Amino acid sequence: MNGPAQLHYDTPEFDILRPGSYVLCAVSGEQIPLNELKYWSAEFQEAYRSAAEATAAMLAGGAGNLKK
């Protein structure tokens, strides 16, 4: 599948609820290929492109709390 996947994020893995080739970064909106996904939050059910974005989202209490 070439579209977005729907995942359930857990620790230390995630479950694929709907197959796809990528998820969107909760901070930047960039596509993250599933084979490159390394950062996510089980608490907030969000994926992140990098450690810096993951850290910023965690400190803010979720990406939705970050000022754009």
Rank of each mutant, 00 (worst) to 15 (best):
M1S: 14
M1N: 12
N2R: 13
N2M: 15
N2H: 14
G3M: 09
G3N: 12
A5S: 13
A5R: 04
A5V: 11
A5T: 09
Q6R: 15
L7K: 06
H8P: 00
H8N: 12
Y9K: 03
D10A: 14
D10E: 13
T11I: 15
T11M: 09
T11Y: 09
P12H: 14
P12N: 12
P12K: 10
F14R: 01
F14I: 04
F14C: 03
D15A: 10
I16S: 06
I16P: 03
I16G: 12
I16D: 03
I16A: 06
P19G: 14
Y22M: 14
Y22V: 07
L24N: 13
L24S: 08
L24I: 06
C25F: 07
C25D: 15
A26C: 10
A26H: 03
A26P: 05
V27L: 05
V27Y: 01
S28Y: 10
S28I: 01
S28K: 11
G29F: 03
E30Q: 10
E30A: 06
Q31C: 05
Q31A: 15
I32W: 01
I32S: 00
I32H: 00
P33Q: 08
P33I: 04
L34F: 04
L34Q: 08
N35E: 12
N35G: 09
N35R: 10
N35S: 08
E36W: 10
E36Q: 10
E36D: 13
L37D: 04
L37R: 02
L37A: 03
K38C: 05
K38L: 08
Y39V: 03
W40G: 00
S41H: 00
S41V: 02
S41D: 01
S41Q: 01
S41E: 05
A42G: 03
A42E: 14
E43G: 02
E43A: 02
F44D: 08
Q45F: 13
Q45I: 10
Q45H: 13
E46F: 01
A47R: 01
A47G: 12
Y48H: 11
Y48V: 00
R49V: 02
R49H: 01
R49N: 01
S50C: 09
S50Q: 02
A51V: 03
A51C: 06
A51M: 05
A51N: 07
A52W: 13
A52F: 15
E53I: 04
E53V: 02
A54W: 04
T55Y: 10
T55H: 10
A56Y: 07
A56P: 02
A57E: 10
A57H: 08
A57S: 11
M58T: 14
M58W: 09
L59M: 15
L59H: 13
L59N: 12
A60F: 00
A60D: 00
G61W: 06
G61C: 07
G62M: 09
G62R: 08
G62E: 05
A63S: 12
G64V: 05
G64L: 07
N65R: 07
N65M: 08
N65Y: 03
N65P: 05
N65S: 06
L66Q: 00
L66E: 00
K67F: 15
K67I: 15
K68V: 13
K68G: 07
K68N: 05
K68F: 10
K68T: 11
